[in-house]
Design a protein around this nucleic acid. Structure first.
Lengths: 221, 221
DNA sequence: TCAATAGTGTCTCTTAGACAATATTGA
DNA sequence: TCAATATTGTCTAAGAGACACTATTGA
């Protein structure tokens, strides 16, 4: 009987950048199956309450997190009889971006079962097919950013151009020329110069910017 | 009770190019709900037999079509309580490409309930949220082609460069310079020159090409 | 003044687009 | 030869990357 209805779930790859590294949020599973292994936050679809699978995804994040993520995007659907021992399952994968300054609020020092893992070196045991999910979500995020979709959702509301470039380089994995990068930013007009300044350890302080209010994290062409 | 389990289905936007127009395959519904309206081919997930939702999608095409489509790709998931009056539904949308020379085999003159509709002018009544699905699948296809993913699956196995350019222009909706286009084709090496020739109504005959055997319809960067 | 980082200017090389010139066929 | 389309070549302009130069701060 259970075979007639698939399990439907939403899983979320929540990314942030810490220490110049692209990281994804993992939770250690308490229960079987795969107790002890690390998994993406996820939740089963509740038809009575969820207006869509995006709602399910947000609910999954809210359950383990206190943070509101601004950006949530579909990546792909994974399906099949062998993904989950509990039965035929359909898993809809999303990805979301979290500014670095909010990352500590998610994985506080207290929690042993929450981790921001470097996507390039996933050393923990990963549950189900979540390793593949992380790889695909990472690729998708990279593609978007390479096509010059500004990953502003990974930055705090106010940021310097150097910080923006650093996030860019971390996500894409490639260095960028400062001059060209700033030329591009000037031409597209997604940024607004603010009139306060920042830091300056022992050097020239940097201008702060914010995104224009209508900014959207979208493809270009 | 039915509320606890969502309906899970795969729908396919099958594209081809006829008369310099990008077209999508529509079927007229026999049964309620929405009898008489036109819908994308689709099928319910059968957990007992479908190894994945891509299988479900292929099965949906096979049911109304005799054609094997080479290329099938996920677009997005649509979900919610209001999409289908039969209950909460989760619909996974795919798109597929069919060479123009195989299009007649699908919608033969006999069938009144099969149509290749111009995606730019959908005049028939469209069932459910399939109009939105068609729009999204079209956008996705366009994006891929704009990024110079050669839409070779829309062409017969052998084709001329002029035919390829024409398909390109039809899908993207924009004219292309012949010289630049051929330069790009030469640089990427996805085509093989054949040594037979074609037509020539009253003019110079065109060289035929085919895709290299390892060709894949993928993003560039 | 020095170290360190922010910000700007200039040069070159690649590439896309415009457009012209040549080639080849049947009628 | 002519009409029609295929194929190739050349010029130009915009953009990306390399790299150097100037600016501003605290120590």
């Amino acid at each position: 009987m259970k075979e007639l209805f698939p399990i439907v779930a939403a899983d979320v790859a929540l990314f942030t950048v810490l220490e110049e590294t692209l990281r994804v949020l993992l939770l250690q599973r308490d229960n079987e199956p795969q107790a002890g292994a690390w998994a993406l936050p996820g939740a089963l679809l509740k038809p009575e309450t969820d207006l869509s699978l995006e709602h399910t995804a947000r609910r999954a994040l809210a359950a383990k997190t206190r943070v509101e993520v601004p950006h949530l995007e579909q990546v792909a659907v994974f399906s099949g009889p062998g993904r989950d021992p509990r039965g035929y399952s359909v898993g809809v994968l999303f990805y979301a971006l979290l500014p670095a300054d909010q990352a500590p609020a998610v994985a506080g020092a207290k929690a042993m079962d929450v981790a921001w893992s470097d996507v390039a070196h996933l050393k923990r045991p990963i549950a189900f097919d979540h390793r593949e999910m992380i790889a695909l979500a990472t690729t998708r995020l990279r593609q978007k950013v390479v096509q010059l979709a500004l990953p502003l959702h990974l930055l705090p509301a106010k940021f310097t151009l150097t910080q923006l470039q650093s996030v860019f380089e971390t996500v894409t994995g490639k260095p960028l020329d400062k001059s060209s990068f700033r030329r591009r930013l000037r031409d597209e007009k997604n940024l607004v110069k603010l009139h306060g300044e920042l830091e300056g350890g022992a050097n020239r302080p940097a201008q702060l910017y914010r995104a224009i209010s209508s900014f959207r994290f979208e493809m270009k062409s």
